[in-house]
């Protein structure tokens, strides 16, 4: 193993330990198990890429494990960008709907529904 593998696997192990500590009350729930599995696989893939990544790369017809990782990250980046953009857009729409509701409920008219916050200018 090289220095990067030692550093990265140590960091991932610490993250895994912290995640397990935080989720100790609900370790057997599906999402927590999935997350723990991802951390464990990432540690294994970094420490022994020829064992844990190369077989998948070969199976998919990609020559090198590094290429497979690059392709996966590119796809994940695009998917997550769309996901977060969509969430952001929907959040913006919710904010607008809330703003609209507040604004309409507080509609004012100098003669029909006076607003005490605005001083009348009778000139």
């Amino acid at each position: 193993m090289n220095a990067f593998q030692y550093l990265a696997s140590t960091l991932l192990f610490l993250i895994l330990a912290y995640d397990l500590y935080r989720s100790r009350q609900r370790l057997l729930r599906g999402f927590v198990l999935l997350r723990v599995s991802v951390w464990l696989y990432a540690i294994a893939a970094i420490c022994a890429p020829l064992t844990f990544v190369q077989p998948f790369a070969t199976f998919l017809g990609i020559a090198r494990a590094a290429d497979l990782v690059t392709y996966l990250f590119a796809l994940l980046f695009i998917a997550s960008s769309f996901y977060f953009y969509g969430r952001c857009l929907r959040l913006e729409r919710d904010i607008t709907a809330l703003t609209r509701s507040i604004a309409i409920s507080q509609a004012s008219h100098r003669f029909h529904r006076p607003d005490p916050d605005i001083g009348n200018d009778h000139h």
Binding site: T99, R100, I102, A103, I104, Q106, A107, S108, H109, R110, F111, H112, D115, I118, N120, D121
Partner: peptide, 11 residues
Amino acid sequence: YNAGVWVIRHP
């Protein structure tokens, strides 16, 4: 408001 029209204000 002072022009005597309906006013709706987005916060």
